[in-house]
Design a protein around this nucleic acid. Structure first.
Length: 488
RNA sequence: CGGGGCGUAGCGCAGCCCGGUUAGCGCGUCUGGUUUGGGACCAGAAGGUCGCGAGUUCGAAUCCCGCCGCCCCGACCA
């Protein structure tokens, strides 16, 4: 077992894992690499999920659910797709257990071997497109805009809570369109929704961009990404939106009759974000005291702590404040615990990242004030009871904005141009973050850079300015800078 | 699968090199009391197949051999 890491500076990755555990977000359980999301972690995820779901529905999408198990043969229908996922699939081979002859427990019944093995979905393109074939006949059936909330399994070699687990929760949207243009537009619309969600709800600034051929989703023509920067200078791919062209339509023979009475293959997109976003939230905002949850996602936005404990006269005032806040749509909780001391509670709520804490004691009441502490800056101030509700309402807005601004300032400071190879390596090893550098556009060079520095091309930013230059590595001509970084 | 490290109370660890009373410490838990505006204090209590197996020895947490498990780094990846 490893020692506890208490500061971000010591070992960021380990500190992150300890924090996720200590704050009660999640832990590993039973099967190696599999994660249990605990109630507090799940409450935050639910806020994220609900908001994303609203944004999907506002753009015309509907939810459905497809099976967990996929016939093995489906996976081999799209050549690139198999290649991308074959190495990490969990396979179901039998459907029955029986008691062992020697009474040692249950064993797999060899007589119950499946004709065709089943794959536990690593992603659902194949089973969904196999289904879409029956759903789509005419241009009148298009566009088909479906999302599903599901779990998937990818048998990764190494895992890390939220960032990469064997099983994870996500949403995957799968759409079918009559034209290339419409599908490309959908791909970008969804990328934009992800970026807006990250920035407006998670207070997480992201770079929108296009993946290189090498980093592209298996089976896609184009993969777009939102890339976020963590506090240790490493990048995190936080969501992807794929333009699939007609690849899956061809693999699964999904055609439609056009208005012109011809028959065409449909155009496809898929897009997803996962519980990895929870990891991004933690790694982008936390400090040594614990989590800092943006108000829009905090399960409890304001906690009222009677000091030293819930005495009747304090509880009465607390109830009045809580009623006012609730009426304003604020998620508020009164701490009625009379066992722990205030200092303990303060530390505890800071660890959980609750945006605002209201301290309420005799001393305050005598002055007609309360103590308001904000988690993001740890500032405390004395606020009059009169007008408190409006003040808190505004404070939550301010905290949300401040968290985003702070993260954006950090991100912006950590996009560094490099013009020579020496500079490039120095930045990666020193301040970290994104390095903006010229690249000759070849996979060969990209891989050579990755080999030597562990940095990958995170993306070619959308609307990237074109400029003449030479590749940082090969010295060959280049037309634009791309963003490199070491990534999770 | 390669390179490191670690398995001792619910959690975090010391003890091991150099074998020797009844295996310790901190946190947590339970009881009682005093406290209560930034992680309270005092007193007492419960809690252990020292990862498993075999060996050396009068005697093994400690030494030897084998096995198992976990963590970290690398290859894979949302």
């Amino acid at each position: 077992m490893s020692k506890e890491i208490t500061s971000r500076a010591d070992d960021y990755a380990q500190w992150y894992i300890d924090l996720v555990r200590k704050a009660g977000l999640a832990d590993y359980a039973a099967v190696k690499g599999c994660m249990v999301i605990k109630p507090y972690g799940f409450a935050i995820w639910e806020h994220m999920r609900d908001q994303l779901d609203r944004m999907f529905k506002d753009t015309g999408h509907v939810n459905a659910y497809f099976p967990l198990l996929i016939p093995k043969s489906f996976l081999s229908k799209e050549a690139q797709h198999v290649e991308g996922f074959a190495k990490e699939c969990a396979v179901v081979t039998h459907y029955r257990l029986k008691n062992a002859e020697d009474g040692s427990g249950v064993v797999v019944d060899p007589d119950a071997k499946l004709e065709e093995e089943l794959i536990i979905r690593p992603t659902s393109e194949t089973i969904i497109w196999n289904t879409y074939r029956d759903w789509i006949q005419s241009h009148r059936d298009l566009p088909l805009l479906i999302n599903q909330w599901a779990n998937v399994v990818r048998w990764e070699m190494r895992t890390r809570l939220f960032l990469r687990t064997t099983e994870f929760l996500w949403q995957e949207g799968h759409t079918a369109h009559a034209t290339r243009e419409e599908a490309v537009a959908e791909t970008l619309t969804m990328l934009d929704i992800y970026a807006r969600f990250a920035e407006e709800w998670m207070a997480l600034p992201v770079v929108r961009g296009l993946k290189t051929v090498n980093e592209r989703f298996a089976g896609a023509e184009d993969t777009y990404t939102i890339e976020a920067l963590m506090q240790d200078g490493k990048a995190l791919q936080s969501g992807t939106s794929h333009f699939l062209g007609q690849n899956f339509a061809k693999a699964f023979d999904v055609k439609f009759a056009t208005k012109e009475n011809t028959v065409e293959f449909v155009w496809a997109t898929s897009w997803g974000v996962s519980t990895r976003l929870m990891g991004a939230l933690v790694m982008a905002h936390s400090d040594d005291e614990g989590l800092i949850i943006p108000p829009k996602l905090a399960p409890t936005q304001v906690v009222i702590v009677p000091i030293p404990k819930p005495l009747p006269e304090l509880t009465e005032v607390a109830n009045t404040i809580a009623a006012d806040l609730k009426a304003r749509g604020i998620r508020v909780k009164i701490d009625n615990d009379d066992q722990n001391r205030p200092g303990f509670k303060f530390a505890e709520y800071e660890k959980l990242g609750m945006p605002v804490r209201i301290g309420l004691g005799a001393r305050d009441l005598a002055n007609g004030t309360v103590e308001v502490a904000r988690r993001d800056t740890k500032e405390k101030s004395s606020i009059p009871l009169d007008g408190l509700g409006a003040h808190i309402e505004q404070l939550l807005v301010d905290i949300q904005a401040n968290m985003f601004e702070r993260a954006r300032a950090y991100r912006d400071e950590h996009i560094t141009p490099a013009n020579t190879w020496t500079e490039f390596v120095e930045i990666l090893d020193g301040k970290g973050g994104f390095v903006s550098a010229h690249w000759d556009g070849t996979t060969e060079t990209e891989l050579a850079i990755k080999d030597e520095t562990k940095a990958t091309i995170r993306c070619i930013p959308i609307d990237n300015p074109q400029e003449v230059g030479v590749c940082i590595k090969s010295g060959k001509p280049s037309t634009q800078r791309v963003l490199f970084a070491r990534a999770y």
